[in-house]
Amino acid sequence: MKKYVFYLVIAVVLSGIAYTSYNAYQTKQDQQQIQAKQQAEGGLETGMKAPDLEIEQDGQPIRLSDLTDQLIVINFWATWCPPCRQEIPELNAFSESTSIPVYGINVTTSERRLTDVEEFLKKTPVDYPVLYDTKGQSEKAYRLLAMPATYLIDETGTIVGKHVGPVTEEMLKEMVQKIGG
């Protein structure tokens, strides 16, 4: 009987060690998957302070921080980017159906020339302000690896939502709803 209890205790201890080891392994695997996803998506993450950019609107310099007195959506895009072009009607719809300002930030340094953007905007209706990053700050500051990239920034200048790739009106509304907006 004593042998039986001894072996039972050993079995329970070994089971506990195996269970603990597996949980630690699984947690590490989950963390690695999250890190891989973040690296693949690139960019800054929610909860981080949004870097201030010196950009242009209608040829005049402005600072991104001047626009964040309320929740805003910023969308980094380029004319040569098919998904960027694809999402413009969705951003238009979101802009028209909510009181949340949308700003399209053209990563101008990735364009062949500024006139390409001007010609594109003559042909494509964009119902929200288009700002120009003529100094190439956004790619480095926001660690952009892909475009389009869309961020929700709250009135404190904190990133409260993010999506890499084309967005839809519904996706943006869901992002706003998640943060209680």
Rank of each mutant, 00 (worst) to 15 (best):
C84M: 08
S15E: 00
S138T: 13
Q32F: 00
T115G: 02
D154Y: 11
G157D: 13
K122C: 01
Q70L: 00
L144P: 07
E119C: 02
V176M: 12
Y142F: 15
T124M: 05
K140Y: 11
E170Y: 10
K37G: 01
A141H: 13
Y25N: 08
G136C: 11
A149F: 06
L53M: 10
E139D: 09
F94L: 08
A40L: 05
I159P: 11
G181C: 00
Y4Q: 08
A146Q: 12
P89H: 04
T109F: 06
E90N: 05
E87N: 13
R113I: 09
T150R: 10
M175D: 06
N92I: 03
I105K: 05
I17D: 00
V107H: 02
Y103T: 04
K28C: 00
K162R: 15
E54N: 14
M147H: 07
V126P: 06
D58H: 07
E56T: 14
D52S: 00
T79V: 11
D30H: 03
T115Q: 15
L121H: 05
L91H: 09
S110D: 12
D116P: 08
A36I: 01
D30S: 06
S21R: 06
T46D: 05
I105Q: 05
I179D: 05
P51H: 03
Q39M: 06
E56I: 06
G43V: 04
I153V: 15
P148F: 14
Y128A: 02
P83K: 05
I17Y: 04
Q29F: 09
P82A: 08
H163W: 05
N23K: 14
E54S: 15
S21A: 15
N106E: 07
L14D: 02
Q31T: 02
Y142A: 12
Q38T: 01
S95R: 03
E41F: 01
A50F: 09
R143Q: 15
M1N: 00
W80M: 12
S99Y: 01
K2I: 06
Q137K: 12
G136S: 10
E87P: 12
M48E: 15
D116K: 04
K162I: 10
T134S: 13
V117A: 14
V164T: 12
L114S: 13
A40Q: 11
E119M: 14
L53A: 11
I17H: 00
Q60R: 12
S99F: 01
V160C: 13
Q39S: 04
E90Q: 15
E119N: 15
F6R: 06
L44S: 02
T115R: 12
Q39I: 03
A146N: 14
E139P: 03
Q29V: 14
I17G: 03
A93Q: 13
V107L: 12
E90W: 01
L121D: 04
L152S: 04
A50I: 08
N23W: 03
G42M: 04
I17L: 13
D69I: 00
K3E: 03
L172P: 12
M171S: 11
G180L: 08
K2G: 06
K123S: 14
R143V: 13
T27I: 11
A36F: 02
P82V: 07
Y19V: 12
